[in-house]
Protein backbone atom coordinates (compact mmCIF):
# COMPACT_ATOMS: atom_id res chain seq x y z
CA UNK A 1 0.00 0.00 0.00
CA UNK A 2 1.30 3.45 -0.79
CA UNK A 3 0.97 6.15 1.75
CA UNK A 4 -0.18 8.61 -0.93
CA UNK A 5 -3.60 7.05 -1.05
CA UNK A 6 -3.91 7.45 2.70
CA UNK A 7 -3.23 11.14 2.87
CA UNK A 8 -5.27 14.16 1.94
CA UNK A 9 -4.71 17.86 1.81
CA UNK A 10 -6.67 20.01 4.17
CA UNK A 11 -6.72 23.72 4.82
CA UNK A 12 -7.97 25.16 8.04
CA UNK A 13 -7.52 28.25 10.11
CA UNK A 14 -6.27 27.72 13.61
CA UNK A 15 -6.38 30.63 16.03
CA UNK A 16 -6.68 32.97 13.06
CA UNK A 17 -3.77 31.53 11.06
CA UNK A 18 -4.29 29.51 7.89
CA UNK A 19 -2.57 26.13 7.58
CA UNK A 20 -2.50 23.80 4.60
CA UNK A 21 -1.40 20.31 5.52
CA UNK A 22 -1.16 16.87 4.01
CA UNK A 23 -2.59 14.65 6.69
CA UNK A 24 -3.01 10.95 7.28
CA UNK A 25 -6.67 10.22 6.68
CA UNK A 26 -6.80 8.59 10.09
CA UNK A 27 -5.58 11.74 11.81
CA UNK A 28 -8.04 13.42 14.14
CA UNK A 29 -8.11 17.14 14.75
CA UNK A 30 -6.60 16.68 18.21
CA UNK A 31 -3.51 14.99 16.80
CA UNK A 32 -3.28 17.50 13.99
CA UNK A 33 -3.13 20.27 16.57
CA UNK A 34 -0.71 18.48 18.86
CA UNK A 35 1.52 16.68 16.37
CA UNK A 36 1.46 18.79 13.22
CA UNK A 37 1.08 22.26 14.65
CA UNK A 38 2.74 21.68 18.04
CA UNK A 39 -0.28 23.24 19.70
CA UNK A 40 -0.23 20.96 22.72
CA UNK A 41 -2.62 23.02 24.81
CA UNK A 42 -5.48 20.76 23.73
CA UNK A 43 -5.17 17.63 25.82
CA UNK A 44 -5.72 13.97 25.19
CA UNK A 45 -7.45 12.38 28.14
CA UNK A 46 -9.19 9.45 26.48
CA UNK A 47 -9.08 9.80 22.68
CA UNK A 48 -12.65 8.46 22.66
CA UNK A 49 -14.96 11.39 23.29
CA UNK A 50 -15.39 10.49 26.95
CA UNK A 51 -13.57 13.19 28.88
CA UNK A 52 -13.68 16.56 27.15
CA UNK A 53 -9.97 17.33 27.67
CA UNK A 54 -9.60 17.82 23.92
CA UNK A 55 -12.45 20.33 23.60
CA UNK A 56 -11.82 23.12 21.08
CA UNK A 57 -14.07 25.45 19.15
CA UNK A 58 -14.79 24.61 15.51
CA UNK A 59 -16.55 27.46 13.77
CA UNK A 60 -17.49 28.74 17.20
CA UNK A 61 -19.02 25.51 18.48
CA UNK A 62 -17.38 23.30 21.06
CA UNK A 63 -16.30 19.92 19.80
CA UNK A 64 -14.32 16.94 21.04
CA UNK A 65 -11.35 17.25 18.73
CA UNK A 66 -10.40 13.60 19.29
CA UNK A 67 -13.56 12.55 17.47
CA UNK A 68 -13.20 14.67 14.35
CA UNK A 69 -11.20 13.41 11.41
CA UNK A 70 -9.02 16.27 10.25
CA UNK A 71 -9.83 15.67 6.57
CA UNK A 72 -13.46 16.51 7.24
CA UNK A 73 -12.60 19.96 8.49
CA UNK A 74 -11.40 21.64 5.29
CA UNK A 75 -12.19 25.31 5.55
CA UNK A 76 -12.96 25.27 9.26
CA UNK A 77 -12.02 27.92 11.74
CA UNK A 78 -10.56 26.31 14.85
CA UNK A 79 -9.92 28.04 18.16
CA UNK A 80 -7.84 26.31 20.80
CA UNK A 81 -6.93 27.32 24.31
CA UNK A 82 -3.84 29.01 22.89
CA UNK A 83 -6.10 31.28 20.85
CA UNK A 84 -8.72 32.16 23.45
CA UNK A 85 -6.99 35.34 24.52
CA UNK A 86 -6.66 36.59 20.94
CA UNK A 87 -3.48 38.41 20.01
CA UNK A 88 -3.21 40.45 23.18
CA UNK A 89 -1.06 39.85 26.20
CA UNK A 90 -4.09 39.67 28.44
CA UNK A 91 -5.74 36.31 28.96
CA UNK A 92 -9.41 35.79 28.14
CA UNK A 93 -11.63 36.86 31.08
CA UNK A 94 -12.47 33.23 31.67
CA UNK A 95 -8.80 32.33 31.94
CA UNK A 96 -8.44 35.16 34.46
CA UNK A 97 -11.45 33.85 36.37
CA UNK A 98 -9.95 30.35 36.49
CA UNK A 99 -6.80 31.82 38.02
CA UNK A 100 -8.74 33.93 40.51
CA UNK A 101 -10.89 30.99 41.61
CA UNK A 102 -8.11 28.36 41.57
CA UNK A 103 -10.39 26.44 39.24
CA UNK A 104 -7.83 23.70 38.53
CA UNK A 105 -5.06 21.74 40.12
CA UNK A 106 -3.06 19.61 37.71
CA UNK A 107 -4.32 21.71 34.81
CA UNK A 108 -4.75 18.83 32.42
CA UNK A 109 -8.50 19.21 31.98
CA UNK A 110 -8.28 22.98 32.06
CA UNK A 111 -7.91 23.84 28.35
CA UNK A 112 -10.94 21.68 27.63
CA UNK A 113 -12.94 23.23 30.46
CA UNK A 114 -12.09 26.70 29.18
CA UNK A 115 -13.01 26.03 25.56
CA UNK A 116 -16.13 24.20 26.64
CA UNK A 117 -17.19 27.12 28.82
CA UNK A 118 -16.68 29.59 25.97
CA UNK A 119 -18.85 27.37 23.78
CA UNK A 120 -21.45 27.05 26.52
CA UNK A 121 -21.80 30.80 26.90
CA UNK A 122 -22.47 31.15 23.18
CA UNK A 123 -24.99 28.30 23.18
CA UNK A 124 -26.94 29.75 26.07
CA UNK A 125 -26.87 33.20 24.48
CA UNK A 126 -28.23 31.67 21.28
CA UNK A 127 -31.09 30.12 23.24
CA UNK A 128 -30.08 26.48 23.11
CA UNK A 129 -31.89 24.68 25.93
CA UNK A 130 -30.28 21.98 28.07
CA UNK A 131 -31.71 19.01 29.94
CA UNK A 132 -32.39 21.22 32.96
CA UNK A 133 -33.80 24.24 31.13
CA UNK A 134 -37.40 24.97 32.02
CA UNK A 135 -39.40 23.48 29.13
CA UNK A 136 -41.83 26.39 29.45
CA UNK A 137 -39.09 28.96 28.80
CA UNK A 138 -39.61 30.87 25.54
CA UNK A 139 -37.61 29.18 22.81
CA UNK A 140 -34.85 31.02 21.02
CA UNK A 141 -34.31 33.50 23.86
CA UNK A 142 -31.04 33.53 25.77
CA UNK A 143 -31.10 30.95 28.55
CA UNK A 144 -30.17 32.38 31.94
CA UNK A 145 -27.25 30.41 33.35
CA UNK A 146 -27.54 29.48 37.00
CA UNK A 147 -25.24 26.97 38.66
CA UNK A 148 -27.48 24.05 37.77
CA UNK A 149 -27.46 25.03 34.09
CA UNK A 150 -23.69 25.46 34.12
CA UNK A 151 -23.14 22.08 35.78
CA UNK A 152 -25.40 20.33 33.35
CA UNK A 153 -23.81 21.93 30.32
CA UNK A 154 -20.24 21.34 31.55
CA UNK A 155 -20.76 17.69 32.37
CA UNK A 156 -18.89 16.50 29.30
CA UNK A 157 -15.69 17.86 30.79
CA UNK A 158 -14.24 15.61 33.46
CA UNK A 159 -11.89 16.90 36.13
CA UNK A 160 -10.30 14.19 38.22
CA UNK A 161 -8.78 16.80 40.50
CA UNK A 162 -12.35 17.68 41.41
CA UNK A 163 -12.19 21.40 40.73
CA UNK A 164 -15.84 21.44 39.65
CA UNK A 165 -17.28 23.88 42.21
CA UNK A 166 -14.60 26.43 41.42
CA UNK A 167 -14.94 25.95 37.67
CA UNK A 168 -18.64 26.70 37.98
CA UNK A 169 -17.78 29.75 40.08
CA UNK A 170 -15.32 30.99 37.47
CA UNK A 171 -17.90 30.65 34.71
CA UNK A 172 -20.41 32.55 36.83
CA UNK A 173 -17.84 35.28 37.30
CA UNK A 174 -17.68 36.03 33.58
CA UNK A 175 -21.46 35.96 33.21
CA UNK A 176 -21.90 38.63 35.86
Amino acid sequence: MTSASHHSEVTLRVNGKPHTLRVDNRRVLLDLLREDLDLTGSKKGCDHGQCGACTVLADGRRVNSCLLLAVTLDGSEITTVEGLGGDGEEPHPLQRAFLDRDAFQCGYCTPGQLCSAVGLLAEAAAGHPSHVTDPAAPSGRPVPLDRTEIRERMSGNLCRCGAYPRIVGAIEDVIE
Binding site: E35, D38, T40, L84, G107, T110, P111
Partner: peptide
Protein backbone atom coordinates in the same frame (compact mmCIF):
# COMPACT_ATOMS: atom_id res chain seq x y z
CA UNK B 1 -0.93 32.85 46.97
CA UNK B 2 -1.88 32.20 43.34
CA UNK B 3 -0.37 29.17 41.64
CA UNK B 4 2.92 30.06 40.03
CA UNK B 5 2.33 27.93 36.94
CA UNK B 6 -1.32 28.92 36.73
CA UNK B 7 -0.89 31.25 33.78
CA UNK B 8 0.88 28.50 31.80
CA UNK B 9 -1.89 26.06 32.58
CA UNK B 10 -4.78 28.28 31.56
CA UNK B 11 -3.10 29.37 28.33
CA UNK B 12 -2.08 25.88 27.24
CA UNK B 13 1.62 26.65 27.48
CA UNK B 14 2.35 24.07 30.19
CA UNK B 15 3.86 20.98 28.58
CA UNK B 16 3.18 17.48 29.90
CA UNK B 17 5.27 14.37 29.28
CA UNK B 18 3.87 13.39 25.86
CA UNK B 19 4.19 16.95 24.60
CA UNK B 20 7.95 17.14 24.23
CA UNK B 21 7.98 17.08 20.46
Amino acid sequence: AERREGRQKVTGAARYAAEYT
